[in-house]
Amino acid sequence: MVGMIGVLIARWTVLVPVLAVLALGATWGRTLPSIAVPVVVVALIGAVLSAVHHAEVVARRVDEPFGSLVLAIAVTVIEVALILTLMSSGGDKTSTLARDTVFAAVMITCNGIFGLALLIGALRRRIAVFNAEGTGAALATVAILATLSLVLPTFTTSKPGPEFSTAQLAFAAVASLALYGLFVLVQTVRHRDDFLPVESDVVVTADDEHGERPGVRTALRSLALLLVSLAGVVGLAKVVSPAVESAVGSAGLPPSAVGVVIALMVLLPETLAAVRAARRDRVQISLNLALGSAMASIGLTIPAIAVASIWLEGPLVLGLGATQMVLLALTVVVGGLTVLPGRATLLQGGVHLALFSAFVFLAASP
């Protein structure tokens, strides 16, 4: 019996995606009773963790910085799927969901994960060391994408309210996708060394990051299980979304809190991966994960939402409010000052975590 339990624990990443799909089949198209909601939520979180685990296996096969890229794209696929799933049945109530979720992802990654990685790195070595060139380029790309997609809609005049016109949305989608693609080219081909970890001013090769690489068969199996996990995430999110919205309303929180909850849930595995990397003195990997996820969240979500807006009913509000724009501006300015020296202390980590705390507090109490 003990041996069987040990096998089950060891094979959780195989069992969880299957259980998630089974749970989806049992609950699809039905109104969940209160007692079933926690079970579905646990299955959903398990599917998210499993998806990122299998993405990490694939990432180990393709090496760094491709590894961070795979994880970021996997997380963004989950995020986009959740947004589209909720918007497809929410109507006008979900008009700001894409904006709230993308902005929350930017704040979580660029302040929460970013600050946590610097804090852990500084605690281990007094100073967290990273590549200023690559990290600075990533932060600049995030700043441009966020401004183009989330700030400009507040000031454009072609359409009333903080919305893009159809032509403006199409331009923002194409520009975001093109800029993200250009960054990926720079990160993985042209200037790959700028995104590899550093240790005492010595560049660490990609092969040192994960030890033995998994075989092709293992990587392909993880790729298949990754797709199964993502299917479970999308479906279970659709099933549990009414309960999430009801819980947010019952707690007296603003509707924008739904987007924050989605982003926090999706980015939890990414946070754990970044923490593990920082504890191994690989702060650059953590920053690649954080900024790569922020970039993919905007650069891939906005084009997906733009295409989906063809059949989605209701308005699509993308423009940030004044409070959110202040937080975004602070994030970009403070992030630039943090990245410039190529090293950071506890103070820089604490500053970013303070900004993250302010975001969470103001999201619950605007």
Rank of each mutant, 00 (worst) to 15 (best):
T141D: 12
V204A: 10
F130S: 05
A172K: 08
S165C: 01
D207E: 13
T166M: 15
A140M: 14
S222F: 03
V129P: 03
A138M: 07
A132H: 06
L196S: 06
G211M: 12
S158Y: 02
D208L: 13
L236G: 09
V204S: 08
T135A: 09
T166I: 10
S229G: 15
Q168K: 03
S158A: 11
G136H: 02
R126G: 06
G235A: 06
A146Q: 08
L227D: 04
A219D: 05
G136M: 05
G235Y: 00
D201G: 10
V216K: 13
P160N: 01
G235R: 00
L223K: 04
L145N: 01
V234Q: 12
A173N: 04
V129D: 12
A170Y: 00
A178L: 15
L169H: 06
V151E: 13
P162Y: 06
R190Q: 07
F195Q: 12
A219I: 00
A175H: 02
V239G: 06
V184H: 01
G181Q: 08
E209R: 11
L236M: 02
F155G: 05
G121M: 10
G136P: 09
Q187E: 15
P162H: 11
G211F: 07
T147H: 01
L225T: 01
S200F: 14
V233Q: 01
L152M: 03
P162Q: 11
T135G: 10
F155M: 01
D201S: 14
E199F: 12
L196K: 03
T218S: 14
P214V: 02
V202A: 12
V186R: 14
G215E: 15
A137H: 13
F183T: 07
A138G: 11
V151S: 12
S229C: 10
T188L: 15
R217N: 11
P153E: 10
R192T: 01
F195K: 10
